[in-house]
């Protein structure tokens, strides 16, 4: 047979989308988030007049560095199709652990790593449950959530103040001049975003995260270390929660057993608004950063309008719905 005929192979040249169009397609959810962010800033400027100022931009980051860190860890988890409900409780536990250790007179160089490590440990427990015992991430991390919240109460039943220069330095120091400012905590959070981006897109581990989200069975048959990767993403998420605990303690100057209540859901909302699909395999950590900023901007706008703060939840709820429908339509179009 004339199998080598060029006409035959022509059918296998497939779809030739231009590189630009293709990239735009994959990034569309993130671009949409950024567009919404800019639209909100524009609307605020038109509505309030003097809205978009260096101060606003600076405080947008400064208000939520811990949420940025949580969203980074959560992005890893959601990209594999998992979920981590424990991170809010870890903030409470990590904060109170720090408060007690500081009260015992230990220096910041010892206490801060221990606070982070407490999150790593809880993440590792969840990771073992998910990766080794094949327990649903929802249940495993729910257990982790109760465990961490319980440990927080065991550590202290009431709020404990923290007086420590090292901790205070993180969010208390203001870098920059005049209206433009930032804090070491914000810089740390943004560095973690950059690190996460590199890990997700330029390491085999990161690509395995995407592969697991695409199809876990296939990833396994391709010989990728699925179990190890799943374990590690919960360790990453837990460590992120530990770091967020440090930042939150620095922000509130205290440890509180009720700290971080519901914050895991805020982080999930930010990740989803940022374009990561809950079933995994698709999304970008930069989108999650944009998601946190959208969240922060809504908070600020609500304050500006001096309406009650629960409107934040309503707006976030509506936005989440819009985004999920948008993603649904987008993936339907891609398939069709």
């Amino acid at each position: 047979m004339s199998a080598e005929s060029p006409v035959q192979s022509a059918g296998f040249r497939g779809i030739q989308t231009g590189p630009v169009l293709r990239r735009v397609n994959a990034w569309l959810p993130v671009i949409a988030t950024v567009a919404i962010l800019l639209l909100m800033l524009l609307a605020g400027q038109l509505y309030f007049g003097d809205f978009v100022t260096p101060r606003l931009v600076s405080s947008l980051f400064d208000n939520n560095p811990y949420l940025i860190v949580l969203a980074v860890g959560m992005t890893f988890v959601i990209l594999t199709g998992g979920i981590d409900l424990s991170v809010g409780s870890v903030i409470a536990f990590s904060g109170l652990l720090g408060a007690q250790l500081f009260a015992a007179g230990l220096p910041a160089v010892v206490v801060l790593p221990l606070m982070v490590l407490s999150g790593t440990l809880i993440g590792a427990v969840i990771g073992i449950m998910v990766a080794v015992f094949d327990i649903q991430p929802f249940i495993a991390s729910l257990a982790g959530m109760f465990l961490a919240r319980g440990l927080a109460y065991v550590t202290s039943l009431k709020s404990l103040p923290i007086k420590n220069d090292g901790l205070n330095w993180l969010l208390g120091t203001s870098w920059g001049g005049g209206q433009w400012y930032t804090t070491p905590g914000v810089v740390l959070a943004l560095l973690l975003v950059a690190l996460a981006f590199w890990v997700l897109h330029y390491t085999r581990f990161g690509r395995t995260v995407y592969a697991i989200g695409g199809n876990e069975q296939s990833a396994r048959l391709m010989g990728l270390p699925v179990g190890r990767t799943k374990f590690l993403i919960y360790v990453i998420s837990g460590t992120g929660a530990g770091i967020a605990g440090v930042l939150f303690a620095s922000y509130t100057q205290s440890g509180n057993p009720l700290a971080g209540l519901g914050m895991e859901l805020q982080a999930i909302a930010a990740v989803v608004i940022g374009g990561t699909i809950l079933s995994g395999g698709s999304g970008y950590v930069l989108g999650s950063l944009a998601g946190v900023l959208v969240y922060g901007l809504i908070q600020i706008a609500i304050t500006y309008m001096s309406v009650d703060s629960w409107w934040t939840y309503i707006v976030i709820g509506v936005l989440l719905l819009v985004f999920v429908v948008f993603q649904r339509a987008l993936s339907a179009r891609r398939r069709g």
Partner: peptide, 15 residues
């Protein structure tokens, strides 16, 4: 046993 969410290149080279 491939990963439809990743690129053609990655599906060949992953790992």
């Amino acid at each position: 046993d491939l990963l439809p969410n990743l690129s053609v290149a990655e599906n060949i080279m992953l790992g």
